[in-house]
Structures are given as structure tokens and as C-alpha cells.
Design a protein around this nucleic acid. Sequence first.
RNA 1: CGUGGGGUAGAGCAGCCUGGUAGCUCGUUUGGCUCAUAACCAAAAGGUCGUUGGUUCAAAUCCAACCCCCACAACCA
Length: 472
Amino acid sequence: MNKVYLTTAIPYVNGKPHIGHAIDYCQADVCARYYILLGDEVRLQAGTDEHGTKIYQKAEAAGVPVQQYVDGNVKEFKDFIAKLGVSYTDFVRTTGPDHERRVQEIWQKLRDHIYMGKYEGWYCAGCERYITQKEYDENNGICPDHQKPYEKLEEENYYFRISDFKEQIKAAIENGEMRILPEFRRKEILRLLQDSPDVSVSRPREQLSWGVDVPDDPSQVMYVWIDALSNYLTVLGYPDEDVSEWWPPVAQFVGKDILRFHAIIWPAMLSGLGLPLPRNIVAHGFILSDGQKMSKSLGNVVDPVEVLDRHGPDAFRYYFLRHIDTFNDSDFTWEKYENAYNNELANDLGNLVQRLATLAAKNDVKIGNDTNVAKLPDEYAELMNNYELGKCFDYVWGKLQELNRRIDEEKPWSLAKNGEKEKLDKCLKSLMRDLLEANYLLSPFLPDTAEKIKGIFADPIAPPETPLFPKD
RNA sequence: CGUGGGGUAGAGCAGCCUGGUAGCUCGUUUGGCUCAUAACCAAAAGGUCGUUGGUUCAAAUCCAACCCCCACAACCA
């Protein structure tokens, strides 16, 4: 039995869940369930990133103690993940005492690659980040997001020497030890890696108070990188516990916006710790709302909880795994969502189950309970192993559509009318067996539905009172 | 001269690497069926493959130039 460790990105909890967060969860969860089908033991991590000045300021603005503020947001995320049916096994919060202590230990282990450096240049307090000279020139010295002039800043902080590991990381990407998917992202990272500068990993306390203290230097607080990225390790108990049976992760799911940190800074950290690199980093795109980037100013933000509540978790998973491209940006509109629900879930799948169950029940044909597939089809497994989740879902759907076709061709209702009992029996059994086989392949994608379908075709076969996917 | 992706039927996409009757899904129209959630099945209509030029017997596919969209450009999911 293999041990498989999968991770999702930990969202920054300065607000409620964004619809984009759902992609990570859906993708990681399907993979987790797939590995379980294979008989592996799976750990799936989820968590929240809770430090930083932005959160601190938001809490202050709300007049709430910071910890209380993040606790509230974390609850929203946890509720959302639960509603989605994500089968996570471990949850990590960066404000958790175990995490904080372990991060400090990790910092110390990386000590040889950390040095005190000086930053001299522009800074935007609103963005909470350094501004390059080029960016400064382009914006004429004024932050376009905050409408405030950039400040001149000169400060000391700690740097992590990425350059110590560049060659190693490059080699790992090139020889396939660490795969970056999709391919075009891999190329992008290889290019970016060339001129990745060392990265600043702390801030003076006056600038950033809500964070993990840098060991042995009370004037500095850790900046996001080491704190947040370490979550994938601390949640397993590293370095207190031996994590070797779970490490390295089989796949880490991230958004395209944070891929570079996961494909450069993070492997550098792991190399510094002497740990193997993740086997796969899977980067997904963003969700567009009616063809445009979601933004508050455009007023086109879609609330994921609303989408989830509309038709339940499996409809949500269906759309996000099949119609949201696994790797590229894709569009969400309510119209598309409703179409997918009505035409595909209700008509293709729901109706298929309904008609077949009715045919079987009316004619008193039964099928045994042994419906699991001994060996997954090669095509299915190969798509899964390459994290081509959308294509894999298409493959399964093709099997379902074929069944609708076959029912029409074999016309079991005429067999019944003509009293051809034997033929009818054979025909329906074969159809049901194939449906249950397809259902097994479907189960990682739509776990609730697959469970229901299994129940419907158990003994006695019972067509559902209310359809699987009712229309309104 | 920042980097990358893309422009193919009303919409969303595949095909391009390894040139050779332009394909899939949804939508539309028509026909069939009646087991089923007015669901299912079949067929048809619909495209000068961004533009111009080049290579070739032959280009959506290779080459060049140009036009237009989009993303990224150190954490805004």
C-alpha cells in the first residue's frame, strides 16, 4: 500500500472564500479519491495563511482582535470546504502554536542560507511590498492601486539565498524529478528561475508585527515565504516527527499566481532542509466571470457559497472539474452553470439512471453488488496520472453517453413487449453492469452521486422517487 | 524591442509538433423512439481556419511580416 500525500494551497484569510479557491480543493480531492480507489493510503492537507500586515489592518479596521478576526474567516473557509465534500485529513493554521514553533525550527535549519541584507528602494505600504525602479517609472511614482506615492525605503532584513539551489532545482525540473504541469508553466518556470534573485524573508517588526518571530533577532518578524510555505511540512509534524513515509508530496495543487513561489522558493527551501522535492506541482488558471477577471469594482464577483447552494456539491464539482479547464483560465456564468446542470447532469446522467432503473425494476431484473472494477482502464489511469482531470472526466462521460445510445439501439422495451425474457435479462444486466463500471470511474469526481447510483442498483433495484438531479 | 498564451461554424474548444477530403460539445432545424426528468437516439444546416506574402504538387498545419485580444511582470484567488 502506497502512502500518498497531496496538498492544496492555503488561502490568505483576509476575507471570505473566493470562487477561485474551489479549484484547488476540487482537483486535489478528485486525486485523493482516485488514489484511494487504487488502494493507496492518502493524506490530503488543507489550511489557512493567517499572518501579515493586511490581515492585521483589516482586523483593526473592523475593531476586532486579530486572532478573533482570523478565527472567524477560518471558520468560513472550513465550512466551505466541508460543503464541497473535500476529504481532507489534515488542517493547518499558520497561527497555530505547533506551526509557529516548527517554522522557527525550520528557519534555524535554513540558517546557513539566510543572511542579513539591506533593501534600498521604493515601497508601497498599501501593497505591502517592494517596488522595482521600472515599476516606479511606469507608474510615475504613484501606486495605481492605492493612489499614493511610493515611499523611499532603506531597511535591513533577512534574505534567503535562492542562488544556492538554482542549479539543483533546474536539474530536478529537467530530469522530471519534480514535474511542473502544465507544460507551458514548466517552461515559464525554467525561464524565471534563471534570474530569480534572493528573496527577502523577514521584515522589521515596526512594519510587520502579526507574524512569526525570527529566532534570535527580536527586531525581525518572518515575512510570508518561510512561514506559509512550511505549512506543507509542519502539518505533518516536521521537524518534530519523522515524515519520511509521507514525504515528498505526490502532488501539490496551486493557482498560477503562486506557482512561481511553489516552483522556485519552496524547492529551494526543501533543498536547504535536505528533503526531496514534490513529485508534481499542478498549476490551475483563474475563473473569469462572463469573460472578465472578477473584481469588486466591476461588480462581477461570484459567491462560491451561492453556487454551491444552488444545486449542491456534485453539481459544483461537475462544473469546476469538467467545464473549468484544468490548467487554463475559464469562464463561469450562471447560464453556463445551469446549462451544464440541466443538459448534462440531469439529462445525460440523471435520466440515464432513471430509465435504466425503471426498466430493470419493471421487468424484475437484478444485478449483484460486486460492481467495483478490478483494474482501472489504462486511458483513465494515464489521464489521472498526468492530472488531466477534465479530459479524464470527459472520458468517463463518454462512457455514460454511450449507454444512452445503447439503450436506444437495443430497445429493451420492445424485448419486454415481445416476451423475449432471456434476451431482455441479458441486455439489461449488461447495461447495468456497464453503468456501474462507469459509475465507479465517476466516483472520485461526483462522490455523492456515485454513492446514490450504487444504492439505486442494489437489491432491490429502486428508481429514485425524486430524480438524481431535479430540474426546477 | 519585457515574458508568455491565443485569434478555427452563433458560443466554448480540438486539430498545428509528424503538411494531403476542417472536427468535438452546446445551441439551431428536421426526423425517429416512447423505457425515462418534454428526457433519449439519428440526420442536416452553419466556417474564405486574424491579415498579407513565401515554401510546396498540396498549408488551419511549415516560414516571414503585420493586425487584434488576453494573462503575467514578487505574493490583489
